[in-house]
Computed example of a mutant assay.
Amino acid sequence: MKEITDILQAYDQAEREGRRCALATVVHVEGSSYRRPGARMLVTEDGRLTGAISGGCLEGDALRKALFAIQLQTSKLVTYDTTNEDDLRFGVQLGCNGVVHILFEPVKDGHPISLLREASRNRSGAALVTLFSRQRTAEQPGTSLLYTGGRVTATLPDALCQTILSDVVCGHGVSHFSHYGPHEAFIEFLVPPPALVIAGAGNDVLPLVDIASLLGWHLTIVDGRPHYADKARFPKADRVIVARPDQVLPQLDDDQQRLFLLMTHNYQYDLALLKAILPGRFPYIGILGPRTRLDRMLEDVGYALDEAQRASIHGPVGLDIGAETPAEIAVSIVAGIRAFLSGHTGRQLKDNLHPIHHRPWTAQVQD
């Protein structure tokens, strides 16, 4: 979602300057590729690029294709095939043994940016549908439908819209492909960025905020010390709250998927906040410090935690990467949270026998 946020900001800037834009979207991949379906890049008519559709090898040629789409105001599907290892003919030298299909859409009257903007505002997630065809003579509808919590925004005929919606609902939150006549649809489920509450506003939180904000996470800093919990100290945080532990939850939005990180270095503050948030059954509670401190804290909660509550607690928090400095510890913590959210272990990629990118849609593609 961070990439979409950056694209929206870049589009707003281009619109203020009166510059036309095109949106490039990776809609299908066969074999190996640096980016997967759903990767996007905004191109302005003066050549500015926001986002990425490859590791940098495609961007030069994609710029030319995007400018062509802007000039003609017509969507176009472009295929980059490197399976024959003769990628020099593209002038891009992909270095990946795969086929990448990229759709270039001129932005007309705010569309399709308006669908991305609406999706980014929804904290419960959204399904975004991009229609394309690998038949050269077929129309390229592009980013055509958004489904958010029962609300539908679409630029498609009603009959086709209803057919696609049934596939969206049956998709159970897993991105996949479907076919509708000459067109394929990439049905992409967008997950909102993690909402992380960091209890603590000490100096060791500064690099943590820097790294998490770079990933586009929604960050709230809470601390009882006003000279620490200061927005000027944490300009990249979305909110900074000065509050006692019992005052924290009432000041937060109702979001059951919210994540918590306790690192005030004040035992009593962390304990009181842990007692306050445990009944809410939030999915992730990270606790900084040694295991002996955590064991004492769990005893001082005053009652035995059930299995689900114990599973939500991650302490000592972070991955074992040998971190020593505050910046290294921040990397460890953020990596640990990211692994938890994606259901991965955080082990070395060289020990992984499966593809790097998860491909839940592979079995559903009908080529």
Rank of each mutant, 00 (worst) to 15 (best):
E324H: 12
G302V: 09
R244N: 09
S312N: 11
V27G: 01
M1R: 10
L128P: 05
F282R: 01
L252D: 07
F234K: 04
G315W: 05
T137W: 11
P192G: 10
I313T: 12
L72H: 15
I102M: 01
E307L: 13
T5C: 06
V222L: 02
R310W: 05
L58W: 10
D87C: 14
S124R: 12
G216Q: 08
G343D: 12
S175N: 08
Q247V: 04
A327Q: 14
D254C: 07
I164G: 00
T264A: 04
W217T: 06
Q135T: 14
D255L: 12
Y80N: 04
D270M: 00
A69S: 15
S342Y: 10
L294H: 13
D109F: 01
V365F: 05
P360M: 12
M263P: 04
D255F: 02
L49C: 13
Q9F: 05
T362S: 14
H179F: 07
R117S: 14
L49V: 09
Q71M: 08
V240C: 01
N84K: 12
L349A: 12
Y80V: 04
F68E: 11
I164L: 15
D46W: 02
L271I: 10
R239L: 08
H179E: 13
I187H: 05
V100Y: 01
L298T: 10
L208W: 06
L49R: 12
E118P: 00
I321V: 13
S213P: 06
G31P: 14
D351S: 15
N352S: 14
T148W: 01
S120H: 14
I287Q: 00
G110D: 05
Q256R: 15
T137C: 04
P316H: 05
S54F: 09
G181H: 09
A52K: 10
A272Q: 11
E15V: 14
Y267S: 06
G202T: 11
G302T: 11
A154I: 06
G280S: 13
G31Y: 09
K350D: 07
I356F: 12
A195I: 00
A39P: 03
V29W: 03
R296M: 14
V331G: 05
G51Q: 10
L208D: 10
D238Q: 11
T155N: 09
A229L: 00
V26D: 05
V240W: 00
A52S: 15
Q93T: 09
E105L: 08
P279A: 13
I277G: 01
D87Q: 09
E59P: 11
R239A: 12
D306V: 10
S213K: 13
A10Q: 14
I211R: 03
R239G: 00
L261P: 00
R151C: 03
N84M: 09
S175W: 02
G125R: 07
T74L: 14
G346W: 01
V242P: 01
Y269I: 08
P141Y: 03
L116A: 06
V168S: 02
H358Y: 11
I102Q: 01
G202V: 12
R281H: 14
L215Y: 13
L274R: 02
V331E: 02
R244K: 13
L72V: 11
L249P: 02
L219S: 01
A154K: 07
A52V: 07
F282A: 05
A199M: 04
Q366Y: 05
S114V: 13
I287A: 02
G181E: 05
G318N: 11
Q247N: 08
I198Q: 00
E324F: 08
D367V: 06
F234T: 09
I321S: 03
R40S: 04
L353V: 11
A10W: 09
G286N: 06
P141I: 07
